[in-house]
Amino acid sequence: GAEKIRWKMQAAYGSNLPALGDTIPGVLDDLREVTDNRIIIKHFEPNKLVPTLNITDAVRTGKLEAGYTWIGYDQGKIPSSTLFSAVPFGMEPWEYMAWWYDGDGQKLAEEIYEKNNVHPVLCGLTGPETGGWFNKEINSLDDIDGLKIRYAGIGGRILQELGASVTVLPGGEIFQALEKGAIDASEFSLPTVDEKLGFYEVAKYNYFPGWHQPFAAFHLIVNKDKWDAISDADKKLINLTCQASVTRNLASAEAYQGKAIEFMKSKGAETRKLPDPVLHELEDVTEKVLKQEADKDADFARVLKSQKAFQAQYQEWQDLGYLPRDF
C-alpha cells in the first residue's frame, strides 16, 4: 500500500530507561526508515498526552491511534490482560514467545482485545524483573506478614494474602518512600532500570528471583479501526518490525543485567535469594489467587488454561532437553 500512515503513539515508559522504554523508539525509527517516511508513528513520552494507566482506554476509544504499554495495567477492566504481560511463577521469556507465536497466545490476545476495539502486537519482551528492594530480611513467610510493600499486579495480591500491607505508589514516589521507611520494600523493574532509579541508595537488600514475573511482555496496541484500515502489506511490515524488536529487546535486556547487579553490589547493595520454602509457599498462594481470578472471569480462565496446557507439554522438553538449573 502506498497510503501514508500518520499515527500518534504514547509509551508507558520513558525512552531513557534501558531495555524498558528505549525499545519502541527503535521500532518507530525502523518503520519510518524502511518506508522512506511513508509510515510515521509519532512517539510521545509517558503522561504527555494521557496518564500511563489510561493508554489502552485512549487507544480503544480512538483518541490515540496507538500505544506501547504493559497491558497488565488494564487488569481493572480486562482481568485476563495480566496473563499476557506477566504471570507469577509463569513462563520463561522464550517459552512465552513460543506460546505467543506458535501456541494460542497471539490468537487469544487478539480475540480478547479486539472485543475491546484494540489490536495488540507483541513488540517487546524481557526476562524476569528483580524480586524487589527490601529494607527487611525475608527468611520466612512470617517476615512478609505486616510488611509495608509497594508491589504491582497479581504479585501484590499474593503478598497481600500473606499479610503484607500492599500499596501501589507511583514510580516517582518509590525512592523517597523507601528511604523514609514509609514502605519497607518495593519492586519496580529490571536491574538496569533499578540502577538508573537509584534504589540501591535507599534499600539494603536486593532480592531475587523475580518470581512475580519470570517474563515481562510489552505490546504495541493499535486502535482496531485504524488497524483494519491499513493495507495487508503494512500490517505485515508492522508485525515484522515488532518481531525484530522482541528479539532485540530480549537480547538487550539479557545483555547488561549482570553488569548492573555487579555495580549495585559495589555500591553496597546486598543481593539475596528468597529461601526455597518461601518460594514454594508463594507458588501455592499464586495457584490459589490465579484460581480465584479464573472463577471470576471467563477469559481469564480460558487464557490460564491455555498457558497451563502449553507449560505442561513444554515441561517435558525443558526437563529432558536442557541441563538442570543447578547443574
Binding site: L49, P51, N54, D57, P170
Partner: peptide, 19 residues
Amino acid sequence: WSYTSLAIDRIWGTMSSWV
C-alpha cells in the same frame, strides 16, 4: 475533537492523584 477529549483522561489522572 476526539484527540482534545483526551482532556477527560487527563482530568481522570488528576482525580486519581494521591499527591
